[in-house]
Amino acid sequence: MSDAPVLEVNDLSMVFGGLRAVDNVSLNIKKGEIVALIGPNGAGKTTFFNCITGVYIPTHGEVKINTSEGSAVLNGLKPNVINEKGLARTFQNIRLFSNMTVLENVMIGRHQSLKSGILSSVLRTKKNRIEEQKVIDDSYEILRKIGLEMYVNELACNLPYGAQRRLEIARAMATNPFLLLLDEPAAGMNPQETNDLVELIERLRKEEDITILLIEHDMSLVMTLSERIYVVDYGKMIATGTPEEIKNNKEVIKAYLGEDIDA
């Protein structure tokens, strides 16, 4: 396999009316990396995610993936097709299927892997039954791995907050991605839950052979987890580097603390 980055974003821009929410951002991630995207509120991070995952069609630029199956350009594809290509995401403001059970939430993630059509499920063919049983077992296995097995039959909306965030990850993992995009996975968590999350993300990368791009405000999490950090402000990329470099970058400090830091 070549050294080409798994995700390559070139000169991506997203314009809403007069607002350039994302302005000429380029980014690349190598296989197996954990990369963080940080920046003040309203910097355009989630918009950037939405452009990559097909919720928005970027005004300009290119989103490209390179996998063992070759390269592909993702611009303009529908979100479900992008998911099929191996990108899965979570949402900042939790978007679970609230009135379905935890297991069913994960089972939906397995949707793509199911081959049987309506007719064979209505006739309950043998193939269909085996497939259904496999979905149930696989989904349970994912829940076990993420530590949610005690909630299998609970409604997603009845879960404690931290567990809901983890369920978002479980559901995304069920789609069998090579790249996982986490949008503020630790938002609203207490320190204990955040620690568990760090442990979970590291374990996922190791065991599942996965690459991770995350947006996060919790700096301790970002600094422990990520190998490289990209910083955006007002839609523009202002810095990139290792956690150490970013910590000492003047531009970044200015963006976070305001203009007159030196004054």
Partner: peptide, 8 residues
């Protein structure tokens, strides 16, 4: 939106 993100 979540539904599409899950590949449906």
């Amino acid at each position: 939106i979540a539904c599409q993100a899950m590949g449906i």
